[in-house]
Design a protein around this nucleic acid. Sequence first.
DNA 1: CATGAGCGC
Length: 294
Amino acid sequence: MALVRPGSGSAQPAKLRWGELEEDDGEDLDFLLPPKQVIGPDENGIKKIIEYKFNEDGNKVKITTTTRTRKLANARLSKRAVERRSWPKFGDAVHEDVGARLTMVSTEEILLERPRAPGSKADEPKAGGDSLSQLGKGGAALKLCRTCGKKGDHWTSQCPYKDLAPQAEAFSDKPPTSDAATGAAGTGKYVPPSVRAGADRTGSDMRRRNDENSVRVTNLSEDTREPDLLELFRPFGAVSRVYVALDKNTSISRGFGFVNFVNREDAQRAINKLNGYGYDNLILRVEWATPRTN
DNA sequence: CATGAGCGC
């Protein structure tokens, strides 16, 4: 049985398809037209161009274009702009005709810093999907950390070593003139943080204050680095430290690491969200870490 | 599977 659409009887003339339509029945007959004429510019800077074309109806039409050259156009520019035109050209523009180009494409090589450390997985497309990228890509800006001096990874406020850095000096009552401080700078001799100027000598070690909010991450792929961990956990709150355990000899990741949060609630939220999270084709385990055994 | 490092007054 044949299916027949209404109105598609055999008497109907075949409809042209879109692709079968003639482009345009007019061939290119421009060679039949008189040549284009350019008159002027005259002493007033007026230039005329006379050309002939066929219009849609196939009739020959004459088109006259009148333009003003720059001499006159200058009158409309600001004095400063006109003056700039007389400046000598420099760089690549030296080889250009006067007025040929007002702007030049610079061929100077400008080296940009890599926004991320080489080897960071942020450079590769992640198999795990895009939900990660929403979790907090820092963007491609150039970042300079004032705490650890590293360029590229993070801002000062996100420095993994922020809480470990000797920052007490800035808040010290006394100017940092102690022997220890100056001696260290002068001789390069090591001065333990607890002895440095401005150090907290009350006995409580403030630099370890956040160690309890420590989260253990296991089942990491072996090419996950600390910057990757930071990127992964940073969206949940201020991170005070990231650490990936490396094999002492081979420097290959042992597949686990730690992330310390400034705030316990942030750590808990990160655990809730990231435990069981697919990362690099592995399912992460994220839990509270038991305190380090010394 | 699995719980992190090092400097030296």
